[in-house]
């Protein structure tokens, strides 16, 4: 059950959008397709929806081969980045649209519509037109409209991409809670790693039409499988492996060393081991402080918590020692 994608490839002219994608989305999970623009994540989502046809491969939804099934017959819910609400219909009519298409008895349509209006917390606004709502409200209406037909899977294409930061954050948390209530197998596309980490059960990291890694947010962050994943999910310093920063206990390998900014430690000169460096820039990021350091020919970025930063009393151009708690090695540079 859930969604099974087998060997799916898709070309747009010369551009290969998807290269032999294999993916299992387990029943009832919430999965994020994460990648930069042009990575094929939206194409994959649209292929699952039936809005695009794969050139090769097959797509199964809940045990049914839907590869060549028309989007109209797939019974999926699709949420668009720019809402795609029917502007000439009220909120209530928008939500009821799919049910009316299915010739649902009017009484049931009314019940279900009211229930969904409650679910999206817009009870009083059923008679408004989409233009009279805020962006966040519109996207919730779009979600309710998609959920009204009890879809087999819910597909969301950058659902929060057009919203401002605060609303986006609220809606993410809300989507998470909604999914716990509704439990429909859901796939959403995002280019925002923070959003993927916060909302999804599993993250599928995509790049250049291929899947780089599939895993839980923790797995993706702590055990990135490729240099691309390491650099895309969270910030990272990339240094040649000979640079003398690498913890002694790490097995030095060929290639490049990848070190997260928060894995770097700064200590005053003479306070134990470390590589000499010069403080070049200090940026306060609220609960964290970002320190840019010059390390011979290289620059590294370190993130310090307030507790770590304050006792150090760092000033610009100060000489300090840097050491790393951890490092990962990949043979090729991302």
């Amino acid at each position: 059950m859930g969604i099974i994608i087998q060997q799916v490839s898709k070309n747009f002219g010369d551009f290969q959008a998807l290269r032999e994608i294999n993916l299992d989305v387990k029943d009832g999970t919430l999965v994020a397709l994460l990648g930069p623009s042009g990575s094929g994540k939206s194409t994959l989502l649209r292929t699952i929806a039936g809005l695009e046809q794969p050139d090769r491969g097959s797509i199964w939804i809940n045990g049914q081969d839907t590869t060549y099934l028309d989007v109209r017959d797939r019974n999926i819910g699709f949420v668009f980045q720019h809402y795609a609400l029917f502007k000439h219909l009220t909120v209530r009519q928008n939500i009821a649209f799919g049910l009316e298409i299915r010739k649902t008895p009017p009484k049931l349509v009314k019940e279900k519509t009211e229930e969904l209006l409650g679910l999206i917390q817009l009870e009083g606004l059923g008679n408004r037109y989409p233009n009279q709502l805020s962006g966040g409200q519109r996207q919730r209406v779009a979600l309710a409209r998609a959920l009204a037909v009890s879809p087999q899977v819910l597909l969301l294409d950058e659902p929060f991409g057009a919203l401002d930061a605060k609303v986006r954050k609220e809606l993410r948390a809300w989507l998470r809670r909604l999914h716990q209530e509704v439990h429909v197998t859901s796939v959403f596309v995002t280019h925002d790693q923070e959003e993927a980490m916060e909302v999804a059960d599993y993250i599928v990291v995509m790049n250049e039409g291929k899947i780089e890694q599939v895993g839980t947010p923790t797995e993706i962050y702590d055990h990135p499988a490729t240099p691309f994943v390491m650099s895309f999910v969270g910030e990272v310093n990339v240094l040649p492996s000979h640079v003398d920063l690498i913890p002694r206990n790490a097995k030095v390998r060929e290639g490049a060393a990848f070190i997260r900014p928060h894995e770097l430690e700064i200590v005053p000169l003479g306070a134990g081991e470390g590589t000499p460096a010069i403080v070049r820039h200090i940026t306060h990021l609220g609960w964290e402080t970002q320190v840019e350091l010059e390390l011979g020919d290289f620059e590294v970025t370190a993130h310090l918590s307030r507790e770590q930063f304050l006792p150090l009393n760092l000033t610009l151009n100060q000489k300090v020692l840097v050491r790393s708690r951890n490092a990962r090695f990949f043979s090729q540079v991302a």
């Binding site: 929806a49 809005l51 989007v71 109209r72 017959d73 797939r74 019974n75 999926i76 819910g77 699709f78 668009f80 720019h82 795609a84 609400l85 029917f86 649209f97 799919g98 298409i101 299915r102 779009a142 409209r145 998609a146 037909v149």
Partner: peptide, 15 residues
């Protein structure tokens, strides 16, 4: 008129 409006209608099962 956005293409997405049509796609939204299709996804909801409209012929």
């Amino acid at each position: 008129m956005e293409k997405e409006i049509e796609e939204a209608a299709w996804s909801l099962g409209a012929s």
